[in-house]
Design a protein around this nucleic acid. Structure first.
Lengths: 192, 192
DNA sequence: AGTTAAGCGGAGGCTGACTCCGGTTAGCGT
DNA sequence: ACGCTAACCGGAGTCAGCCTCCGCTTAACT
């Protein structure tokens, strides 16, 4: 890879990161190319689809999440709190850029896309964490990891929408951790 | 309202209904106008925004849902099963057209749009059903109706995505009622 | 210094949202 | 029955964003 190409690639990812943060994941690709000072053709050559660009922006964070899952699986003897903690991290991650949770949910089901492949490892680690909890009898066994991710993604989209309306005067704050708590309680095996 | 205008309006709603059913709620408005045999200008005059059209398509169904909620609140002495049943109906409704659950979630937070106003009554009835359950001590009181709707909408979007991939060979089926059950269990007051 | 493959960039085609205005007509009064 | 006119119609036109294609440029190797 030529030096100029590498420079452009890095610059694009950088600009995309901040553009996603301020304008959400649906920011116009032409706008990103413009801010990065490259032509639209360059962006498309490097990142043929929007998902490719998103995947590049998220790559390190996904590695981190997979790592944390492994550490939690080893060091924490309580599978319940390990998974609970990890899921909160995942939710925080998906809430970083407006629209990201939907894109991730989409990618979950399709490992042929760049984003899907990128988050596969992270998801595998998370799934192991859940399975561990299920085998220990802490969580219901009939609920799959994808089910939990679906619910988590729903939580994030809900919070996103709410925070977009600054005039949320009379409405309650819609705390993502409260919603997560509801899901996790529903997930736990009941010994009533 | 002139007779021809009324005819066109009815025809548009009719066509939109079937177009939404087959192609999802993001169907091109020009396509809908074409199928209805009217100009695009006519569609926009009658329904200035896409939400207006969606609201018109859903109007009767929303009335029905509000009605059912009232009936359930009166006839059913168990507030838990009343709300549970109603929520399943709502989920089934939101799953009718691909993309509807997101639009509804959006509209929930903003009663200034046509769709928001249209579903307000329905939501009020549902909320009363939840409040009744909370006062009876069946459900957690710290969770709002909007929270529950957010989670429900998340369930629906997840199921939508899955059903779009026909090659879901190795993946589990992702049953909406299972997910709903998780949420409802998490919502119930625990007597452990 | 010459060669060349890799890279660049933007013009251009496409689709869909949305507007605007000249022509048309339903439905009223006479 | 026949105007009259306000209401209505329709599509041409504008705009934004996605994406492709190809002639020009240049890094980097010999």
């Amino acid at each position: 890879m030529r030096a100029d190409a590498l420079r452009n690639r890095e610059r694009l990812v950088e600009v995309a990161q901040s553009a996603f943060a301020t304008n959400g994941i649906d920011t116009s690709l032409e706008e990103i190319a413009r801010q990065a000072g490259v032509g639209i053709g360059t962006l498309y050559r490097r990142f043929p689809t929007r998902e490719d660009l998103i995947a590049a922006v998220l790559a390190e964070r996904y590695l981190k999440l997979a790592e944390v899952a492994l550490v939690l699986a080893e060091e924490r003897e309580d599978p319940d709190s390990a998974f609970t903690e990890w899921l909160a991290l995942l939710v925080e991650h998906m809430a970083l850029y407006r629209g990201l949770s939907l894109a991730v949910k989409e990618a979950m089901h399709d490992h042929t896309t760049a984003l899907g492949r990128t988050c596969k490892e992270m998801m595998d680690s998370g799934e192991r964490l859940l399975t561990r909890g299920q085998q220990a009898g802490a969580f219901r066994a009939d609920v799959s990891f994808l089910d939990v991710l679906a619910l988590s993604s729903g939580i994030v989209t809900a919070v996103e929408r709410r925070s977009e309306k600054p005039d949320a005067s009379d409405l309650p704050p819609l705390n993502p951790y409260l919603l997560l708590d509801v899901v996790l309680r529903g997930l736990r095996v009941e010994d009533r």
